[in-house]
Amino acid sequence: MFSANGFILRVLSVKRGWLMAYIELENVTFCYPGQSRPVLRDINLSIYKEGVTAITGANGSGKTTFSKLLIGILTPTKGWIKLNGQLLTSLTLAQIGRRIGYVFQNPGKQLFCETVEEEIAFGVRNLGLGLSTDQVAQKVRMVLDYFELTRYAQVYPLSLSAGEKRRLAIAAVFVLEPDLLLLDEPTTGLDPYRKKLLGDYLDKVIAAKRGVVIISHDQKFISRYATRLIKLQEGQFVEE
């Protein structure tokens, strides 16, 4: 708790003052079972529901592990994580998934429906808004259009190209209307034009007072869109 790093981050979060942390981590340490060295050590960090927080770090520094902790797929070996004031361990994956929209580093892993259209409709139906079939179809059409996937509506998601899969994964999470988007390497597989579209989309998300966390190696993209930059180094975060 009193590590120098944690302290600095804490001061920084106090400076942000009026804004309440959306996700709070305290003394979080994580070690994969059967391994001697922890991937993440004693992390104290607050993440806010504003702007684009970018996380960078070398290959294997633990960024994906960190994101899996935030979303509750992994639980910390030590310390705790709070989401909007509630302990993460007291929530189910479904409850977390509705608040944080997570796009995996390998988006193929999160597609499980038989058509692209179904993939997007799945989330819309699970929102529990009680939409009629027509309303669902309309919303799906809108999203397909926005992410340029209309021509693939009836295609098996796993036979899409890598970039198309990534777009679909983002779209499928987008319809859940989460408070915070957590994107692991969202620009890989995207061409420059789609990168720009993604960036514009992120701008819209933050304008709607929702937050974004991206994990990326793409320096250009980060320097253009990120409002806060943190670097993962030897299991700890350094704010830049």
Binding site: T92, G97, A172
Partner: peptide
């Protein structure tokens, strides 16, 4: 592993398998 990942993805998409 593949099946586990998919089950996680399904839950994150709002299906409360635990409940």
């Amino acid at each position: 592993e593949e099946i586990k990942d998919t089950l996680v993805a399904i839950q994150l998409r709002g299906v409360d398998l635990q409940r």
